[in-house]
């Protein structure tokens, strides 16, 4: 007798809709085992579910105590997902051109259905900066960067930098006064990069037959902005950095960060 036939045979007794669905071939093709109601299936679910296999099957109680972890790493990752989802939705409306950028944000505020996505995206971004700091704060205070987790701390620092860069590049996109002047102030620093900025110490070192190679049209700031001032090229550059380049790198590093948590022995705990 095949499995489905057995189910059918069982269903001749009283069977709820839920049981019928869970007994169907479609359901069973997705979930290879019964619901995690007993110990065996609670273990199996962690091993067979793609999303859950991020976690181990079991952990020490202390390692997941909220007073210990503050949940800040988890919230940071969740906010990254929120930012990805709301960000993709916003990309359907927003056009990164001088002509449209501001108008599209205005429309998102005033007329677009679910324009609140922009609010969630912005507040989520601010919250992510804060939670990533607090995550680092607790990892430091619990000494969790110590061996064997040194390298994962390094990956974490890189993720912190990427979070700030994501927030910084996104700051320009509304193309209002707040945006361009914050980016102008922020990127003016690059002008003073030693050797590579045209107002930085030692920029004269890079010259060819007396002609400076580092000018306002070829220095570190120009590389960042794609222009001598914050303009349309900058908007395009920051848009691609914000929506594609940095998220891809961040996603890769997040994967490594999580992988290393498992490989370095799980959440840190007293030995």
């Amino acid at each position: 007798m095949t499995v489905s036939a057995a189910c059918y045979a069982e269903s001749t007794h009283s069977m709820s809709v839920g049981d019928y669905i869970r007994g169907s071939q479609i359901w069973k093709s997705i979930f290879r085992h019964p619901a995690p109601y007993d110990r065996r299936n609670r273990i199996v679910v962690m091993l067979t579910n793609f999303f859950l296999h991020l976690h181990p099957v079991s952990v020490k109680q202390q390692g997941i105590a909220l007073s210990y972890t503050w949940c800040m790493g988890g919230i940071t990752f969740f906010l990254f997902l929120v930012e990805t989802i709301t960000g993709v939705l916003l990309m359907f409306y927003y056009r990164p051109t001088l002509e449209w950028a501001y108008q599209d944000i205005l429309a998102l505020r005033d007329v677009t259905t679910l324009g609140v996505m922009r609010e969630i995206h912005r507040w989520g971004a601010h919250a992510m900066v804060i939670t990533v700091w607090l995550h680092m704060y607790r990892v430091f205070l619990t000494g969790s960067y110590k061996p064997p987790r040194e390298f994962n701390w390094v990956v974490g620092v890189l993720l912190l930098v990427l979070t700030l860069l994501l927030s910084f590049t996104g700051y320009l996109l509304p193309w209002d006064q707040l945006a361009i002047w914050a980016i102008t102030v922020g990127s003016n620093m690059a002008r003073a990069t030693p050797v590579l900025g045209h107002e930085g110490p030692g920029f004269q070192l890079l010259n060819l037959g007396g002609y400076d190679l580092i000018t306002s049209g070829s220095d570190a700031r120009f590389l960042l902005l794609g222009s001598r001032f914050v303009g349309e090229e900058t908007l395009n550059r920051f848009y691609i950095l914000h929506c594609v380049a940095i998220p891809l790198v961040a996603a890769g590093l997040i994967a490594i960060h999580f992988w290393r948590i498992r490989k370095d022995g799980g959440i840190s705990q007293p030995l």
Binding site: R42, H55, V59, K60, Q62, I64, L66, Q269
Partner: peptide, 17 residues
């Protein structure tokens, strides 16, 4: 948190949290 620091199953103790 280290007294009676037993191992618990991630489902449900962690995933529900």
């Amino acid at each position: 948190n280290n007294e009676d620091n037993e191992k618990v199953l991630v489902w449900p103790d962690l995933v529900y949290a």
